[in-house]
Design a binder for these strands. Structure first.
Ligand SMILES: NC(=O)c1ccc[n+]([C@@H]2O[C@H](COP(=O)([O-])OP(=O)(O)OC[C@H]3O[C@@H](n4cnc5c(N)ncnc54)[C@H](O)[C@@H]3O)[C@@H](O)[C@H]2O)c1
Ligand SMILES: NC(=O)c1ccc[n+]([C@@H]2O[C@H](COP(=O)([O-])OP(=O)(O)OC[C@H]3O[C@@H](n4cnc5c(N)ncnc54)[C@H](O)[C@@H]3O)[C@@H](O)[C@H]2O)c1
Lengths: 221, 221
DNA sequence: TCCGTTTTGTTCTCCCGTTCACAAACTCCT
DNA sequence: AGGAGTTTGTGAACGGGAGAACAAAACGGA
């Protein structure tokens, strides 16, 4: 899934833990907004939907931020996780392919509130150019290079049809983007050092269908 | 992630394999449409973006559908995987929460072509009722029970705000839905025997941000 | 028929992740 | 000050998945 080339820095956090840190972060934000000042690993684990031992081990990779007999300071731990993930700063993001899904993503407020700022919406179709979506103007895909250079964009989102995805990814990589979130079906091939994460709704539904079928078979027996 | 209660039937396919079968299925469909009649595990693995040994082991859980020295018959293997997943039949699906994301999902043609049929779009907001999206009329959320009963729906999609998600899930479970695809943030609690899969875009982006930050740190050193 | 080539199916080993269990550390009450 | 109660941090056992390696099987040509 992720390719590592650069020299490993100080702490090496397991991939599975990295994927859970954002979940803890959200749970902590909810707790903080509810006015909770301190929480135990048990309580936080319940809020995040994981085993408490796993939570404690995950947090131990970041350091020793809890107090035995007491628990964790919600705001302090929240800051530490945010810093570790790197969302104390804002990451500029470009979205390519402003169709059905691209519109939804552009309108999604959860990005901005969680450390990401959409700096541009790009589409190859001239008919879409100039349209305003969530306060941002849709621009030609060919503006990619200048926008990435101007804002120092490192993260790109692909929401184009599958046939265009590889070409879009190539252009992104060529102009310096090193992390891609891909909604299009199929496999993207990128050079080492570029991270790609794929979201595939059909896969999710088909996994559900598999289990659903098994349940039905079990009832017959 | 998934809860198993019913008695295990004949073959027990590892969860990791189940998650990859849909990927193989798509790769096979692409190959078939390109006119390929036979393919080796090496070729299919490349198309699916996985290791060929892993692919062969995955397929061996389904049975012995290949021919040594030759490879796999594309259409035959495709049918076998589709049957194993359970997408030779059509699964009726309801989508709840027809906002930004719900619109995109309703318009997504990839569902129908992969074994799923959207039978209803439901929303709690009366202002949305009667709107036509992708040829389907948006109906009141309170119609859930009658629609599920009428069509025998087993799979539900939640695309409401996070605060409403648990209540929607409860109603779904109460009227017989046993598989839920959840796009809302936060943890859903459901009884054993109900499968929930969560898609969380913020988590995906934050994982990318973490690696991005590490890359930047590595360059400084 | 026999041998070389190709490719599957499977075994074996290693590694990562999960979970249990407990000692260390902290608080609070007497 | 001391003991009871609570909760963290981590060592250790366990299970599952990934990948290398190879034997078994099929094919094709001589
Ligand atoms: N809509 C969904 O809910 C959904 C769900 C899962 C996956 N997907 C996937 O997401 C992708 C987008 O889906 P959608 O429904 O928004 O499709 P869409 O057709 O509505 O939008 C695609 C957009 O990409 C643009 N585009 C095409 N080629 C381009 C290029 N080379 N460069 C830049 N822009 C280009 C098009 O002009 C269009 O605006 C598809 O790959 C689809 O499979 C969508
Ligand atoms: N838009 C995105 O790209 C995106 C991305 C990731 C996650 N999400 C999540 O998906 C969910 C939906 O996002 P959105 O942008 O479409 O939001 P939205 O506000 O545009 O749409 C939500 C819809 O749900 C309906 N709704 C509210 N309460 C309901 C209830 N109790 N029963 C039935 N319907 C109800 C509302 O009327 C509205 O139509 C949110 O939880 C959001 O966090 C969205």
């Amino acid at each position: 899934m992720t390719a590592r080339t650069s020299t490993e820095s100080a702490r090496d956090i397991p991939e599975a833990t990295v994927a859970r840190l954002p979940v803890y972060l959200r749970a902590l934000t909810t707790l903080s907004e509810a006015g909770t000042g301190t929480c135990s690993s048990e309580a936080l684990a319940a809020a995040a939907g994981v085993n408490s031992a796993k939570l404690r081990k995950d947090l131990s990779y970041l350091g020793s931020y809890g107090t035995r007999g007491v628990g964790y300071d919600v705001d302090y731990l929240r800051y530490q996780i945010a810093r570790e993930i790197g969302v104390t700063q804002d990451w500029p993001v470009v979205i390519v392919g402003i169709g059905n899904l691209g519109h939804a993503l552009a309108n999604y407020s959860g990005f901005r509130s969680r450390g990401f700022r959409t700096v541009a919406l790009l589409d190859a179709d001239p008919a879409r150019h100039g349209e305003m979506v969530a306060g941002i103007e849709v621009q030609p895909f060919d503006d990619l290079e200048s926008i990435v250079a101007e804002h120092g964009v490192a993260i790109g989102v692909i929401a184009t049809p599958a046939v265009a995805a590889q070409a879009v990814a190539d252009r992104m990589v060529a102009c310096g983007i090193t992390s891609i979130l891909n909604f299009a079906a199929g496999v993207l091939s990128v050079p080492a050092g570029v991270d790609v994460r794929k979201v595939d709704l059909s896969v999710e539904l088909q996994v559900l269908a598999y289990h659903e079928q098994r349940k039905a078979q079990g009832e017959l027996a």
